[in-house]
Design a protein around this nucleic acid. Structure first.
Lengths: 127, 127
DNA sequence: CTGCATCCATAGGGATACTG
DNA sequence: CAGTATCCCTATGGATGCAG
């Protein structure tokens, strides 16, 4: 979701985009969801999300870590072990995301019904 | 954001994805934001969002209409006129999105600070 | 185990031109 | 005015292989 030109609240400086962009990718919400239950290591996350590739999991975690939503703990053991935990910031963020998720759950039927009822506009003027 | 395999809450039947996917694209939130202030016609939306192409605006509006978040009113006049208005469903949805936006505004500094402070993990074991 | 590097397929979305 | 049709380019992300 790269931005080329400018627009009112669409600027890179715009907090809304800055945050919501992360919700756009396929995995961020899933990872937050799993971590919300408690600390997990890399491999545990892989097992729980199942169809995420290591590449995508690592990338998603890097982003979350960069934004200060997730803390990364490396144990210099053999074999290596890395724990991921939501920070306070991450928790508070996920709370809001959950509110949206709750809305989705509550209104999913209405949305699906609207989709079923939908008929494509006849180009112009329905006569 | 197409889904190929399956996953816990990642199924197509999953309300969370079903809703959040729409937040992923570049324009949905912007359009909702503009319509939250009141009914607008196609050209008015174009003017307000400025750098959206007619193609993308039409597509975004179709999606919102399909999901029952936006109502489309066609006036068979010459020249044609089409009004877009948030439905009750759309309004209630946008309220939740706004909560996220508010979080983003409040915590943007913290996020930016985290990004500045971030240093890439040294491959493994920080020693 | 953790994860980076590489290669590649695909879909989202920009620019433009054209119609009812 | 309100879109649609077309072309094309780029970023996202899947698969794989390698490394600390």
């Amino acid at each position: 979701m790269t931005l080329h030109r400018q627009s009112l609240i669409l600027t890179e400086a715009c907090p809304i985009r800055d945050v919501l962009d992360r919700l756009g990718d396929r995995w961020t919400v899933l990872v937050l969801h799993e971590l919300a239950a408690g600390t997990l290591r890399f491999s545990e996350l892989r097992k729980r999300i199942a169809d995420i590739s290591p590449r995508m999991l690592a990338q998603t975690l890097r982003h979350l870590e960069q934004d200060g939503l997730v803390k990364r703990d490396v144990f210099p053991t053999v074999p290596p072990r890395v724990d991921y935990t939501l920070t306070a910031l991450g928790t508070s963020f996920f709370e809001r995301v959950e509110m949206l998720a709750r809305w989705a759950a509550e209104n999913h039927e209405a949305v699906k019904a609207a989709r079923r009822a939908y008929v494509a506009p006849a180009a112009n003027a329905p006569k």
